[in-house]
Structure formats: structure tokens, C-alpha cells
């Protein structure tokens, strides 16, 4: 199960609270009647489905109920970042080189734990 940070609630919550809503940044044409059949099919059905970093929508359906976007690696399932709906696409290259993802931060610097025996002594 994924651990997902909602950018509105500013908290990491289990995947069960969320509903995945597919590829992000798909924009419906306005007015839609001017769109060709090919363009409409591309909007409605055709997907990038990348192996690697992808932009996707999530909805915190059992929380605040709001939609937001995320960047996730579809091979490791790790989230690089989450951001509010309507915000521009983050620069993925910067995110990767900086390595300042919330998920990695947790993995790389776990909170120091005192072994139980020492605690007992103290």
C-alpha cells in the first residue's frame, strides 16, 4: 500500500484514503465541438503510460475530497512530489537531481532510535 501526502491536508495518509484519477494535465478543449475526432480520442482514451516518471491525478476521497497532482516513478512506485491542482508541472529534472523527495528523505534519514536495552538502563 502506498503512503501518499495530500498537499491540502499536508499529511501522509495510507492509499486507502485516496482514489487514483489517471494521467494528469489532460486539458479538455474549449469549445469541445471544435475538436477533431482524433484529438478528442487522444484526450479521452490515449495515454502516455510511461515506464518511469509520470504525472498523475489523485483524489483524497476519504479525506478532504480534493483533487491534486503527483509525480511518481512507475517502476519503484515512489512519489517524487505532490502539488495542488492548477499548479504548473514541477521541473522533474530538478527534483531528481536534488533528491529532496519526501519519500526518499524518510528512507535515507530515519529518526534515530534508541535501542530498548539502553532505554531500560536509563
Amino acid at each position: 500500500m502506498l503512503l501518499i501526502k495530500c498537499p491540502y491536508c499536508e499529511d501522509e495518509r495510507p492509499e486507502l484514503e485516496f482514489r487514483n484519477a489517471g494521467e494528469a494535465h489532460l486539458v479538455r478543449a474549449n469549445p469541445i465541438v471544435d475538436q477533431s475526432d482524433d484529438d478528442f480520442a487522444a484526450f479521452l482514451y490515449f495515454r502516455q503510460n510511461p515506464k518511469g516518471l509520470q504525472f498523475e491525478r489523485w483524489r483524497h476521497i476519504h479525506g478532504c475530497g480534493r483533487f491534486f497532482n503527483a509525480v511518481r516513478d512507475s517502476v519503484s512506485d515512489k512519489f517524487l512530489t505532490v502539488y495542488k491542482a492548477g499548479e504548473p508541472k514541477p521541473n522533474v529534472e530538478q527534483l531528481v537531481t536534488r533528491g529532496t523527495t519526501p519519500a526518499e528523505a524518510v528512507v535515507e534519514s530515519p529518526a534515530p532510535r534508541t535501542p530498548r536495552t539502553k532505554k531500560a538502563e536509563a
Binding site: 512507475s74 517502476v75 512506485d77
Partner: peptide, 13 residues
Amino acid sequence: DQYTSYSQTGGLH
């Protein structure tokens, strides 16, 4: 699972 992935592994739930 509800999300797209190439990980060949899914959630325990």
C-alpha cells in the same frame, strides 16, 4: 491496483 505501475508487485490490501 488502482494506479498504473510497472513494478510487478501490488498492494497487500
